[in-house]
Simulated scan of single mutants.
Amino acid sequence: MAMGEETVTHPGVVKKIEGDKAEISVISKASCISCSLKNVCSVSDMKEKIIEVDIADLGGHHEGESVVVEMKQSYGTWAVLLGYFFPFLVLFFGLMLFLHLGLDQGLAGILSIALLAPYYGILYLMRGYFKKRFRYHIQN
């Protein structure tokens, strides 16, 4: 990774090394670090996530070792855009188009929601591309 790029880091543990991939377990906690009640949060506010990392990025770590996983912050921005903002635009412009064509409001709403199926279908078909593009690295 280039120097000076903003990154997001998470501590994790190497769970499994298989072939050219390693699985890293990261505990995701609710974003309540500044909350005065953070000590009374339940375990349900934490979730284990498994992240896949290339062996080349592992840097000699072994199963059970603690590591720090990092990803470019811009990837998170793109994930939010692809998952929330662009679907909103599809809904909004689809609804405006169907209403402009003179369809009933209920039918226009249903059809604009139906436009999300091809959108998410395309994202699903492109999952291989996104898996290569949105990569995690082990911090050195």
Results as ranks from 00 to 15, higher is better:
1 M>R: 03
1 M>L: 08
2 A>W: 05
2 A>N: 13
3 M>H: 13
5 E>K: 14
7 T>Y: 13
10 H>Y: 11
10 H>I: 02
14 V>M: 12
15 K>F: 07
16 K>R: 15
19 G>R: 00
20 D>C: 01
20 D>W: 05
22 A>F: 09
22 A>L: 02
24 I>D: 08
24 I>F: 11
28 S>L: 10
30 A>K: 14
30 A>I: 08
31 S>F: 11
32 C>T: 00
35 C>M: 03
38 K>P: 03
38 K>I: 04
42 S>C: 06
43 V>K: 15
44 S>W: 06
44 S>Y: 09
45 D>C: 15
46 M>C: 11
47 K>M: 08
48 E>F: 01
49 K>H: 11
51 I>V: 15
54 D>R: 09
58 L>E: 02
59 G>W: 08
62 H>M: 14
66 S>N: 15
66 S>H: 14
68 V>C: 06
69 V>D: 12
71 M>N: 01
73 Q>W: 07
73 Q>I: 10
76 G>D: 02
78 W>Y: 12
81 L>P: 03
84 Y>D: 01
86 F>E: 03
89 L>M: 12
89 L>P: 06
90 V>D: 03
93 F>P: 00
98 F>I: 07
103 L>A: 07
105 Q>P: 12
105 Q>E: 13
107 L>G: 05
109 G>A: 10
112 S>W: 07
113 I>L: 15
115 L>D: 05
115 L>R: 05
116 L>K: 03
117 A>L: 15
120 Y>R: 00
126 M>N: 01
128 G>S: 12
128 G>T: 09
133 R>S: 11
134 F>M: 01
136 Y>R: 00
137 H>S: 08
138 I>T: 05
139 Q>L: 14
139 Q>S: 13
140 N>I: 09
140 N>R: 13
